[in-house]
């Protein structure tokens, strides 16, 4: 009992930390970072766009690790971590895509283009959406865990592909860290203040990820317990 109050206290601390970091990052984006010369205000989306994409991919990486862990040990805790990673990852990748789209409207003059980066990101979203459908289709928890783990491993191939797509293929998507394709539109050099803001945004989103992940795992544990009780009731009546 005491142990659980201690963890929930820790969780509240992480929550507050995440919230204040996000507010700090937001403040820095608007008041600390300079306005980019060519693109103007819309460039400020960059900080949260990249941070959200990073968090999304981190979620999928966690799901991969959890999948491997589950198949090796058979411990159902891994399954709870896996679905938490995918759900949070999917939310953040969607956010990143929407932010990117808002940025692209003035800069590329279109909401969407079939660029390698955009296409691979879309494929990645489709795969993890299919992951959720797959979970929905299996009732028995043990089997659901194994199947999801397998699909999380197979599906993860899309993540490095998305990450590397702007570095391997010809693309108009800018690469800020590393060298861009000459065809890319919307490239800029980060000034020191921009780098600070960018780093704080990355940290803020990572801490936010930890907080959300923690909450989702707690929820997952409760759900698993609920499912177990339901099964017990069911067999008890027989």
């Amino acid at each position: 009992m005491r142990n659980s109050t201690k963890t929930s206290l820790m969780l509240i601390v992480v929550d507050i930390l995440a919230a204040s970091l996000i507010l700090t990052a937001l403040f820095m984006v608007f008041y600390y970072a300079p306005v980019e010369v060519e693109m103007g205000l819309v460039q400020k989306i960059f900080y949260f766009h990249v941070a959200a994409a990073w968090t999304g991919m981190l979620g999928f990486l966690v799901a991969l690790a959890a999948g491997i862990g589950l198949l090796r040990s058979g411990n159902m805790k891994w399954d709870i971590a896996g679905v938490a990673g995918v759900e949070i990852g999917l939310v953040f990748i969607s956010l990143s895509t929407i932010m990117g789209s808002i940025w692209a409207r003035p800069i590329w003059n279109t909401w969407w283009t079939w660029d390698p980066r955009l296409s691979t990101a879309l494929i990645m979203m489709l795969i993890y959406f299919a992951y959720l459908l797959l979970r929905n289709g299996v009732e028995e928890p043990g089997r659901r865990a194994r199947f999801s783990a397998v699909y999380a491993i197979v599906g993860f191939v899309s993540v490095p592909l998305t990450f590397l797509s702007i570095r391997l293929f010809r693309t108009i998507h800018p690469v800020i860290i590393g060298s861009s394709d000459p065809a890319a539109t919307g490239v800029f050099e980060m000034s020191t203040r921009m780098t600070h803001t960018f780093m704080i945004s990355l940290v803020a989103f990572s801490v936010l990820f930890v907080a959300l992940f923690w909450h989702r795992v707690r929820l997952g544990v409760k759900l698993a317990l609920f499912e177990q009780r339901k099964m017990e009731d069911f067999t008890g009546e027989d």
Binding site: I123, A130, L134, E139
Partner: peptide
């Protein structure tokens, strides 16, 4: 799975698109 054949294209196609 509960839905049997129905889900195979949904699971397979995104993975093999590249």
């Amino acid at each position: 799975l509960r839905s049997r054949e129905m889900l195979l294209p949904v699971l397979l196609f995104p993975v093999v698109i590249p």
